[in-house]
Nucleic acid binder design. Structure first.
Lengths: 231, 231
DNA sequence: CCAAAAGTGTTGGGAATACACCCATGC
DNA sequence: GCATGGGTGTATTCCCAACACTTTTGG
């Protein structure tokens, strides 16, 4: 291999909220290096292939592609020593899976709560933490929750989803009002039936858009009225 | 070259505020493809080299390295057709240069206002726009202004810097109060002498830190008091 | 009627913009 | 003293967390 030419892999940080916890999809390495450690799904970039396509292709071995509601590039790691065998550049992607998806996983693959990561191979642990930070931030200023929530949901369910992804308690009351005012979610005509033991039926909501929308643009120092010119 | 091995280049989007405008450093191509178009500085990643190091090395031909006050990775472009000759992956970096720097540039290299970009080679135009968006956002929630401002400055000078980088008018009054309250800037004991024509001498300020600090973390849906657990 | 869950009204605090006004200097 | 630019005080607005209260169901 010429010196000015490099292997390149695409890695997917697949998040799903399962059982009120944010979990990440990992597979356990059976061979050195990092034998027994857990790694992100991914693999080599092929000729003529884009990185995003490549990430999707490797994830297809774990989850059905349509179940990936959102995929976005995170960052590229280039430490020459990140793989002890030979140099491999890695571009990480954030992939979000809606809770409806219950993919049948290969035997070496499992979900792990992001707050209790096992020993991870290579630099994958730090990549996962970086992905989690990105997700947390984007939940605050975009509608990215659509990729973690089912088609329709009650506010309580959505609160649990946000709480799991963000990592702290979330108020259903305020969540409803904020996301409604931002027009991120909207009520459907339907309601749930009460659970046993009673309780008022909940309105079912849905996300207004299933594509990423920035709802809270960074706007510090901007005057209230127009004025787009530099001065 | 094996099919599973790729050329990779690092590109630098170098921004500097010059003459009240945000400008980007470009060089004009003398040979096809895109002969006569303007391109970002950069070049091939070498064996054993990190991408950030590589970007810095290529930028060293244009500006003195210590003048680069901030360097951060933006994104990796992988369209197989982005270079018509052969496939090259490109990782773009955002590089900010303080206004003191007045580098002597090679003959084919020049500054261009980001609002009036010339015809750009490859996908460099879209990379520059993406870098500008990142800069604009980070000015709102980090202290990244330190990398565009001189060591000490008056609030008026800082307002001009922010206005140029963000692209809309900025109020000096509010800029001062916001950045002071966030402890991003602090007054020095020094003041400027009045310009001809009079006027009160201005306090000289400096940035409290010359490393990137997130001052305005995304905090929607977070309860006021503690509570770090998931529920 | 009571418990349980959902949803609304209201309050209060904090942050940011706008604007009026005061301060310090040169001429 | 007056023009010029720097800085502070204050009002207004907006967003959001908190919490009390109402609504709607099951038993």
């Amino acid at each position: 291999m010429p010196a000015d030419c490099f292997r390149h892999e695409a890695l997917g940080v697949v998040f799903q909220v399962r059982g009120s916890r944010l979990q990440v999809l990992l597979w356990q390495r059976a061979a050195p290096p990092f034998e027994g450690s857990w790694a992100l799904p991914g693999g080599q970039l092929l000729a003529g292939e884009r990185l995003g396509t490549s990430a999707g292709r490797y994830l297809a071995a774990k989850v059905d592609i349509p179940e990936i509601a959102h995929l976005e590039q995170l960052e590229t790691r280039s430490d020459p020593a990140r793989d002890p065998r030979e140099r491999v550049l890695a571009t990480a992607y954030l992939a979000l899976v809606t809770p409806g998806a219950r993919p049948r996983l290969p035997g070496d693959t499992a979900w792990h709560p992001v707050d209790e990561l096992p020993a991870c191979a290579f630099d994958h642990g730090s990549i996962i933490r970086s992905a989690r930070e990105r997700l947390r931030a984007k939940l605050s200023y975009t509608n990215i929750g659509f990729a973690l929530a089912p088609e329709t949901f009650t506010i309580s369910q959505l609160r649990d989803t946000y709480a799991a992804a963000i990592g702290h308690p979330v108020s259903a009351t305020n969540l409803q009002r904020i996301l409604t005012r931002r027009a991120v979610i909207e009520p459907t005509p339907d309601v749930t039936r009460s659970a046993r033991g009673g309780g008022r039926p909940a309105t079912l909501y849905r996300f207004a858009s299933r594509g990423l929308v920035v709802t809270n643009p960074f706007a510090a120092f901007r005057p209230r009225e127009a004025g787009t010119l530099t001065s």
